[in-house]
Simulated assay, not measured.
Amino acid sequence: MFFRPRCSLCCIFFTIYTLMLMFMLSFLLFWIIISPSSVKFHVTDASLTQFNLTSNSTLHYNFKVNVTVRNPNNNIVVYYRRITAIAWYKDNGFGWVSLTPFDQGHKNTTFLQAVFVGQRVIKLKSKQLGEYKEEANVGIHKDLAVDFDLGVRAKFARFKSNTFSPPIVQCRRLRVPLISNGKSAPPFSVTRCSSGSFFSGRDADA
Rank of each mutant, 00 (worst) to 15 (best):
R82T: 02
V121A: 09
K107F: 07
A87K: 07
S165L: 03
R175N: 12
F14A: 15
D143H: 14
L48S: 07
V39K: 09
F51C: 04
I12H: 05
N52E: 14
L28S: 09
L29V: 13
R172K: 11
I140Q: 08
N108F: 13
W88P: 04
K155A: 09
H106R: 10
N73D: 15
K160R: 15
N71M: 13
S126Y: 01
I179N: 05
I179A: 12
L174E: 05
C11P: 00
V69H: 03
S180K: 06
H42P: 00
C7D: 09
N108I: 06
L150T: 08
A154L: 09
N56Y: 04
K183L: 14
G139P: 13
G151Q: 14
L99I: 10
S189E: 15
V152R: 02
E135W: 10
L174Q: 05
I168D: 07
E134N: 12
L21S: 14
D103R: 05
D203P: 00
C193F: 03
N74F: 08
L19P: 01
V121T: 14
R202M: 07
P36L: 06
A145W: 02
S194W: 03
V117N: 09
V67H: 10
K142V: 04
W31C: 01
W31V: 07
I16R: 08
P187E: 10
C10H: 03
T54R: 08
V39G: 12
K40R: 13
G95P: 12
L29F: 15
F41K: 02
D203C: 01
C171E: 07
R6K: 08
D91K: 06
P187L: 12
T110S: 10
V169M: 03
D103Q: 09
Q104C: 05
F199M: 02
F111S: 11
F30T: 07
L124S: 02
D45L: 05
R81I: 02
E135I: 02
N66R: 10
H106K: 10
F14L: 15
T54P: 12
K127S: 01
G182C: 06
V67R: 11
R81E: 15
M1N: 05
H106Q: 09
F102M: 06
F159D: 00
T58R: 11
R202T: 06
F94N: 05
M1L: 08
A136G: 00
N71A: 08
K155L: 04
V78Q: 06
V77P: 01
Q128R: 03
I12A: 12
A145P: 02
F41C: 01
T109P: 00
Y79C: 00
K160S: 11
P36W: 04
K125P: 00
N56V: 07
F41E: 01
K40S: 10
N71S: 07
V97P: 09
L19R: 02
N71H: 12
V190E: 15
T68D: 10
F164Q: 01
F3A: 03
V39D: 13
V115E: 14
L9N: 09
S38V: 11
V117L: 04
F41V: 01
R120P: 01
S55Q: 14
